[in-house]
Amino acid sequence: MNFLEEKDALCKKEEPLLEVVNLKTYFPIKSGVFRRTVGYLKAVDDVSFTIAAGETLGLVGESGCGKSTTARSILRLVEPTDGKIFFKGTDVRALKESQLRSLRRHMQIIFQDPYSSLNPRMTVASIVGEGLRIHEKLPWREIRERIAFLLDEVGLSPHHINRYPHEFSGGQRQRIGIARALALNPSLLICDEPVSALDVSIRAQIINLLTDLKERHNFAYLFISHDLSVVEHIADRVAVMYLGKIVEIASSTELYNHPSHPYTVSLLDAIPLPDPKRRRNVTPLKGQVPTLAHLPSGCRFHPRCERKRPICETHQPPLTEVSPSHSVLCHSPIS
C-alpha cells in the first residue's frame, strides 16, 4: 500500500491518472495435438491513451473490437502481451501479484451483465463488503455500517443487506455492482457496457447515478459502450476502436461534430435516431466486420471504406493529429 501513497505524493499535477502506451494483448491460437501456437488473435493491438483525474473517456466500438479486452488488460485481469500501463505513475505491468492486488482497490470495474457479475450464493453484504474485508482489517460491525452507507449511496435500501442477488431486478443488481466498485473508494472506475443489458427506462437511472457519483467523488471513468448516444451523454473525450486499434480519439464535442475517420462517420450514421423527421438516407456501411484471426492488410478498415486509396491496402496508416486533442488513424481523414 505504502508504495502507492508515496507515489501519490510524488505524482505531479499534470501527470495523467492513467497512461496506456502501446498496449498489446494477443491471445495465442493453439492447434494440433501438442497445442502449438499457430497464430495470434490481436484483440488489442498497439493502443495508447491517457485519462486525467476526474475525466471520463468513452471507448466505443462494435463487438469484438477489443474494447473489453483493453479494460481487462489495464486491470491485468488478462495479461497484456506488450506495452506499458502507468497508473498514478506506477508501472502496473511491473507489479508483483501481491502488489497488484493492493493496487486494484484504486481501479475498479463495473460489468455489463448484472446477472453473471454477482455471485448468486453470496448475500449483498458479502458481495459489497468483499473488498473491505480483504483490504481493511475492520470489525464486521463497522464493515456493515459502511455497506449500508454504500447501498444508500447507490439508491438501494440498507434493508437489502442480507438479500441474495436473485431477489433483485436487473437495474437493482447493477446498483449492487456499482456499490461493490465504490466500496474501496477508487480513483478510476472502468465501466464495461454498464447499461447495455438494461431496459430503456432503467438505463437512464443508472446513467444519472454514474454522473452523480462522479460529481460527488471526482472519479475518472473509462466508459466502454457500443452506443454512441450514451457515450456522448457521459464522456469528456471519446476513443473509437476498430479491430483492436483506436482509429480516432478526440474530445466529445469535436468527435461528434467533426468526425474524421470514415469508420466513425459510418458508425454515427448507423445509429437509428428516435426522431422520425430526421430519418436518414445515407447508405449504411457495407460488408461485415472481419474476424480478428483474419485481419486485412494495411489499414484494417480498407475493405469497408468508401475513401479507400491504393496505399490503404498496403500500409498501416499513422496516427495523425488533425487538430490539438484530435487524432485519427487514417491515410485520408475527412476534414
Binding site: R72, R104, N119, R121, E130, I134
Partner: peptide
C-alpha cells in the same frame, strides 16, 4: 463469470476465489 473477475478486481487471491467465491456455487 464476471463475478470471479469482480472478486479478482477487488484484490482477492486465488484460494479465496476458489473456495469462498466459486465453491458455494458448486456445492
Amino acid at each position: 463469470r464476471d463475478y470471479v473477475l469482480a472478486a479478482k478486481a477487488q484484490g482477492a487471491g486465488p484460494f479465496r476465489i476458489m473456495f469462498k467465491h466459486i465453491f458455494p456455487n458448486t456445492f
